[in-house]
Design a protein around this nucleic acid. Structure first.
Lengths: 226, 226
DNA sequence: TTGACTACCTACAGCTCTGTCAGTAGTCGA
DNA sequence: TCGACTACTGACAGAGCTGTAGGTAGTCAA
């Protein structure tokens, strides 16, 4: 219930304030629907007055823009973090699992979807410019190393880019519509089905880059635990 | 300019009216962002008064629900139509192309995304119940026939379901974020890149079901024309 | 301590959007 | 032709939201 600290009013630095406001807005957006970004609600969540938000972002539009801009960055960080996971030799499945998990939990996928629906993102040059390329390069390095280690040819660049793109789109679709798709395929409330799907996708990708050495169709999964 | 026909007032059947209103709402949604569903705007588009909409849908919520419900059905129809494309032996690439194309053009993907963002869809039992299953079955029949013809084993059921699911998620992600993803991978405004991506995805899927007979990595595409 | 700066506040204005109400006008069957 | 039914309308009310204005209170430097 918003513990009243010593001073009657808490005073943040402008940067802190912007950060907190963005976080709260993102929370609202992730939980409620697209029309859930109301200055008054966000302000209430933070225990501040709504004009404070206007003070920091000029107007609602400004807030929304900032939100959209931060979405891409956050998404990127998520994926990069998942890619540079501790074990450098981990299976594609594990990496994918991590990416999907992170993405689903943080509302980033939804946020991104929303902002792209709201047509905020197309603002030309905003945000990190070619983040997917960076991702693709990171993945290319990994795949290249793995391939060399296994004595296979290094995958083509564009294939890697496409793989990243596929994961990105699938991730978005999954985060957005995972439950709905579960229902539509007759597995309502069956989270395991969704997880099996991710595994399957990982296999497909792995098979694409490592054309299945033995005749067994399903590649062995170095299971990530759960 | 709404040509004024004979009578001062046009009177539709209730069903017609609902249909027209839904269509107009969908148009609005596809063009404008998520907050573009305003009764007054929709009414203006149709040249009717906004209380008429309330008359047919009770309240805004009712309209939104109806919209969400229709989204799934429309999506389904789109895909089924693309699947049952004239040439029964057409390549997966061509089918995928058609699906993505249809989906992107009709605003159905965006509509679906929106409604799932707005958490309208999870209304338990509404809409076609297991449409993805139906799709999967259609695809299974196709793949089964193709496989038998080529003397390969019929693919497993769940693999087919997953393939459909992958296409569905990717489709959604692509429809939503295609342009953004183009930008993010350094191919701003490069529609060809997007198309190559779809081809690539088709290949991956084809390879998954027909494990690449000759040693050439890229499966030949019976190009769909463009 | 004092002054400048600015994060933050309360109060209010104006607008827009949904929803209600009571009446109007097409349409169809008797 | 008349009556019932109901799609449709204009006018209005109420609520909620964004944005403004002017004052308040932390904080830091001189």
């Amino acid at each position: 219930m918003k513990t009243p600290r010593g001073p009657l009013r808490r005073r943040r630095t402008a940067e802190e304030a912007r950060h907190e406001i963005l976080a709260a807005a993102q929370r609202r957006l992730a939980e409620g629907g697209p029309e859930a970004i109301r200055l008054q609600d966000i302000a209430r969540d933070l225990g501040i007055a709504h004009p404070t938000i206007l003070h920091h972002f000029e107007n609602r539009e400004g807030l929304v823009r900032a939100l959209a801009r931060s979405a891409i960055g956050a998404l990127n960080d998520d994926i990069l973090r998942a890619l540079s996971t501790p074990q450098p030799g981990a299976s594609a499945a594990a990496v994918l699992d991590r990416i999907f998990e992170t993405l689903g939990e943080s509302g980033h996928a939804r946020l991104l979807a929303w902002s792209s629906l709201a047509e905020r993102a197309p603002r030309g040059d905003t945000g990190e410019p070619q983040s997917l390329q960076i991702l693709a390069e990171a993945l290319q390095r990994r795949l290249g190393a793995d391939a060399k280690a296994a004595g296979r040819p290094v995958p083509q660049r564009e294939d890697t880019v496409f793989a990243v793109r596929l994961v990105a789109t699938a991730m978005l679709g999954d985060a957005l519509m995972g439950e709905v798709l579960n229902r539509l395929s007759g597995h309502a409330g069956d989270a395991a089905h969704q997880r099996r799907f991710r595994r399957w996708l990982a296999e497909v990708l792995e098979n694409t880059f490592n054309p299945a050495p033995p005749p067994k169709r399903r590649v062995s999964l170095r299971s990530s635990g759960k």
